[in-house]
């Protein structure tokens, strides 16, 4: 397989950025009523009390920003977990992020009686972080952790929590009802002041991801060769896992479990740029929000004036792309 040169990679990155910008604008314009670009511009630059401006500032803009942030977090966390475990089946949910978050939310709803979706968020974030740490502790030894064992530990913890969650849900109709809408995954009605506190975590995690990209490249050759090249295995793994937990945990806390974005975006990025982690991360950070926003826009258009939650649309947008890519000849070389 020929690997594209630096110039074409950079060109592709600019292209991806342009697509993302276009989607951002579309996401603000399109909805139950279409709003002209000039009104969008006015709403941002000359705020007034016009009804269209109101719906832009209070609904569409927050929704678009949430989509951007969540998509970016999911894309990069997916790239991290696949690089870390060298397993193409790995998605951020695998380390117990989704299991921890949804267990915590079920307990919050079923046992503690929380009924406010904004109240779920911190439960979900805490659940995701605590469970991922548990998985890491279970899967590691003093010499560091083996990727396969960490993944299996994640599967185990997710299973135990999932069973407990399901038992709770099947015996409590209220919890079941609340969870079935949380499970669909959505970026609607997340006020920005609830989302801001999570952003610093994302920033730290993004910096960490790009910092470990080099060592992760070396680790793709196998642990022994990576050590021979001076990579500190344990430190790289811990930093990468912290980064991906913050990203995936934060994204799940904000939007609920959104499938396929974290899994497929890194695959697409890898097919474009070849096996180079730093580029894969950069592409994933742009392609993730593009997929999420495109799905969200589609979800608003298809059942106009009704809406389909974005978590449901992502699969229908993403899966055909993934399957088409898998059928190309180039992909079989991977």
């Amino acid at each position: 397989m020929t690997v594209p040169g630096r110039r074409s990679r950079l060109l592709g990155l600019v292209l991806a950025l342009l697509v993302l910008l276009a989607l951002l604008v579309l996401s603000v314009m399109i909805g139950s009523t279409a709003i002209a670009p000039s009104v969008v511009w006015d709403a941002l630059v000359h705020p007034s009390s016009d009804i269209d401006q109101f719906s832009i500032r209070d609904f569409r803009l927050p929704r678009t920003i949430v989509g951007l942030v969540v998509g970016m977090a999911l894309g990069v966390s997916g790239a991290l977990i696949q690089a870390l475990t060298r397993n193409l089946l790995a998605d951020p949910g695998i380390l117990g992020v989704h299991a921890g978050a949804s267990f915590a939310v079920t307990v919050a709803v079923g046992v503690l009686g929380v009924r406010d979706p904004q109240g779920y968020m911190w439960f979900a974030f805490a659940g995701a972080l605590v469970v991922t740490l548990m998985v890491l502790a279970l899967g590691s030894t003093r010499q560091g952790s083996s990727a396969v064992v960490v993944v299996l530990a994640g599967v185990c913890v997710a299973a135990v929590l999932g069973g407990a969650r399901e038992a709770l849900q099947l015996t409590d109709p209220d919890a079941f009802d609340a969870m079935r809408s949380w499970n669909a995954g959505s970026i609607v009605a997340r006020p920005l002041d609830v989302v801001w506190p999570i952003l610093p975590f994302f920033a730290v995690a993004l910096v960490l991801s790009f910092a470990v990209a080099g060592p992760l490249n070396a680790m793709a050759l196998g642990d022994d060769l990576a050590v021979a090249q001076g990579v500190h295995l344990g430190r790289t793994r811990v930093l990468a896992i912290i980064a991906l937990t913050l990203l995936a945990g934060g994204a799940t806390a904000i939007a609920g479990p959104i499938v396929l974005v974290g899994l497929m975006v890194p695959h697409v990025a890898r097919w474009i740029v070849g096996p180079h982690q730093r580029w894969i991360f950069a592409y994933s950070a742009l392609l993730g929000p593009s997929l999420l926003l495109a799905s969200d826009i589609l979800g608003r258009v298809v059942m106009h004036p009704g809406e389909i939650p974005v978590g449901i649309v992502t699969a229908f947008v993403g899966a055909p792309v993934l399957i088409a890519l898998a059928r190309r000849n180039k992909a079989s070389g991977l």
Binding site: L89, I312, A315, F316, P320, A326, A331
Partner: peptide, 13 residues
């Protein structure tokens, strides 16, 4: 595997 994941994800949704 990849095709399976894609189709499963769509049906899951």
């Amino acid at each position: 595997i990849i095709v399976g994941i894609g189709v499963s994800a769509m049906l899951h949704s």
